[in-house]
Structure formats: structure tokens, C-alpha cells
């Protein structure tokens, strides 16, 4: 057997300095991140993109995904990125670290950007944001405006004081409706989504309850109009896992995936370089083309139609129904 050239695939990883910290609302801070090394440039991105932020070090190290919420097009924003983080008490540690530990001048490592929530071209948009879910929507508004699209945003939050970026949104005037829950109650999804609107794409980001409700309300809309982003993994019972065979077509390898390992980790053990980041089925980095076999999907990215299409899988969590999968790796 001849040795194939070793190929290592990875995302851009870069050290950035926290150039400034800004309080955006009760509980929300935004960080401006700029390259730590002189001469480094941040790569371009488009609305909906997010980055990994590697927080802390050693055993306490955390990797968290945050949407880029600066204006991708503003000249002064080209040299830096902005992320915004809500302080949550039930947080898995990321938001507490950002709020309590990170200071101006600190250096953190970031990965990406990547985008699984890209703003598709359309003459008209309806944006629905709940709470900190406003972050990926913000740059979308600027792009929709620049492209000359017709759009409106409905933005709900606990209270006016808790809602971030209301100053930036004020510039858009009547296109933006702020709905503080303590004043106006929850978002009126029936009124918003009850009647499908023609040529309109719906972009929604917010807490899981809002996403579920919007998904249900959009059932009567044409397929393909609803775009959402989730940042919470779907629970799975690993005790039921079965062993299966995976054929890596490009690499010319046939491997066994034991019940206690993922396709991703088996690839790594066999020197097959694949992209991955969160390892819990939420970031979409490890999406891999499926050539044959039926996938048991366990990620939070693909919807039921995409799952049924069986074209791709997230190899960090998803497994095999039946004994064998063939992948484009």
C-alpha cells in the first residue's frame, strides 16, 4: 500500500485581545475582539456567522459559540469583531467567565468564523428575536437594509432594561418593534405568523421555547422560508448505542465504530483529519456527506426534512441505523 499524503483540515484559530467591554443592557455585555498579533487580519464574515471562543485554560477550559453581532460592513468594524454575552445563572460556565473574569486587554483564542445561519437573498424578511437571540439578527438588519430589501424586526425581551442594542435599533425607526414582556406580554406569534406572507423569509433566534413556537406557527408557510439557529444540544441515550461499520470512501478505509465512540473519534484515531468543534451536535462544523447507509441523526442542526434526505450527518454525535455507513471522508 502506498502512503497517501497526510491532509490536515482545520478552522482558522487566532489569538485576539479584548479591546473593549461594553454594557449593552441589564445582564448583557459585549466584547470587542481584535487580533492580538500586529499584522494579523480578521477574516471576512457575513451576517449569521458565529465563532468559537476558547475560555479559560487547562481542566477548566470551555469552548463556547457566540454570534458575531457587529456590523460586518462598517469600516470601523473591519478590524475587530463584536460578540455579546448574556449572564445566566444556570450557565454552563461560559457566560459567568465572560462576565466575571474577562477584562479589557485579556487575550483569548477564537476559531472560525463559520456560518450555519446565513441570510439568503430575498426581497422581504421577517426577523423575530427573543432576548440575547438578537445578536445574529443585528448584522442581518444592516445587510437587508443595504441590499434594499423590505424587512421588519419583532424583538421580544423580559423588560426594556434587559433588552440589548435598543440604541442601535432606534436608527431603523418603524421597521423595528420592541416588545418588552413586562409591558406588552409575550410576542404575538399568531398575529405575526398566522397568515403566510409572499416572498418573505423568516429568520428567528432566541430561547428554545420561542424557536419551537415559531416552528409550529410556520407550519402553514411555504417550505424553506423559516431559518433558525439553536445553540443547545439534543439529549440522547448513549446506553442504547450499537457498534457499526463506517466506510471512508476518499481515504480508502473501512473502520469499526464501537458503541462507546463517535465516528469523529474513530476518524481521529485513524489519522483521518476532519473538521469538528463543539462535539455535541450544535455547531455544524463536522457535517459530512453521506454516500450510503442510513443515519441515526442526533444533532440540533438538521430539521426533519434534512434528516430524512440522509445527505449529510454530524459525525460528532450521529450514528447509524443498520450496520454500515459510507461517508465522503
Amino acid at each position: 500500500m502506498t502512503l497517501s499524503a497526510e491532509t490536515v483540515l482545520h478552522e482558522l484559530e487566532m489569538d485576539v485581545v479584548v479591546r473593549s467591554v461594553r454594557v449593552e443592557s441589564d445582564g448583557v455585555r459585549s466584547l470587542e475582539l481584535a487580533p492580538a498579533a500586529a499584522g494579523d487580519r480578521l477574516p471576512p464574515w457575513t451576517p449569521g456567522a458565529h465563532i468559537d471562543v476558547l475560555l479559560g485554560s487547562g481542566a477548566d477550559a470551555l469552548v463556547r459559540q457566540y454570534s458575531l453581532c457587529g456590523d460586518a460592513g462598517e469600516a470601523e468594524d473591519r478590524g475587530s469583531w463584536r460578540i455579546a454575552v448574556l449572564r445566566t445563572e444556570d450557565s454552563r460556565g461560559g457566560s459567568r467567565y465572560v462576565h466575571d473574569t474577562l477584562r479589557e486587554g485579556d487575550i483569548v483564542t477564537v476559531r472560525g468564523p463559520r456560518n450555519h445561519f446565513a441570510l439568503a437573498g430575498s426581497p422581504r424578511y421577517l426577523f423575530i428575536a427573543g432576548g440575547i437571540g438578537i445578536t445574529p439578527i443585528l448584522p442581518m438588519l444592516a445587510q437587508a437594509e443595504a441590499a434594499g430589501a423590505d424587512w421588519r424586526l419583532v424583538y421580544g425581551g423580559r423588560s426594556r432594561a434587559a433588552m440589548a442594542f435598543t440604541d442601535r435599533l432606534a436608527a431603523y425607526g418603524g421597521k423595528v418593534a420592541l416588545v418588552p414582556q413586562d409591558e406588552q406580554g409575550p410576542l404575538d406569534l399568531d398575529g405575526l405568523l398566522g397568515t403566510p406572507e409572499p416572498d418573505t423569509l423568516v429568520y428567528c433566534c432566541g430561547p428554545a421555547g420561542l424557536l419551537d413556537a415559531v416552528e409550529a406557527k410556520c407550519a402553514s408557510w411555504p417550505s424553506g422560508v423559516l431559518h433558525m439557529e439553536r445553540f443547545t444540544p439534543i439529549a440522547a441515550d448513549d446506553a442504547q448505542n450499537l457498534e457499526f461499520t463506517v466506510v471512508l470512501q476518499r481515504s480508502g478505509l473501512t473502520l469499526t465504530v464501537p458503541a462507546d465512540k463517535s465516528v469523529y473519534s474513530v476518524c481521529r484515531e485513524n489519522d483521518v483529519s476532519v473538521l469538528a468543534s463543539c462535539l455535541e451536535g450544535i455547531c455544524g462544523t463536522c457535517e459530512t456527506e453521506v454516500l450510503d447507509g442510513e443515519v441515526e441523526h442526533r444533532d440540533a442542526i438538521l430539521d426533519e426534512h434534512e434528516r430524512a434526505a440522509n445527505n449529510t450527518m454530524m459525525i460528532c454525535v450521529s450514528r447509524c441505523r443498520g450496520g454500515k455507513l459510507t461517508l465522503d471522508l
Binding site: 445561519f117 437573498g121 407550519a219 423559516l226 431559518h227 442542526i301 430539521d303 449529510t312 465522503d328
Partner: peptide, 24 residues
């Protein structure tokens, strides 16, 4: 209804890209 993702859309597997984006 089909929520639509625009991320790592799966490849055609049949050859090369022939269309280029206008926004460029």
C-alpha cells in the same frame, strides 16, 4: 414547512461549480 439551512450544503458529487455569486 421546512426550516432551511444554508451551511455546509451537501455536494452534488457530480463535478464542478458552474455558477458564481453576483454579490462579489
Amino acid at each position: 414547512m421546512k426550516p432551511h439551512k444554508t451551511g455546509r450544503a451537501h455536494a452534488s458529487g457530480t463535478g464542478s461549480v458552474t455558477r458564481f455569486p453576483r454579490d462579489a
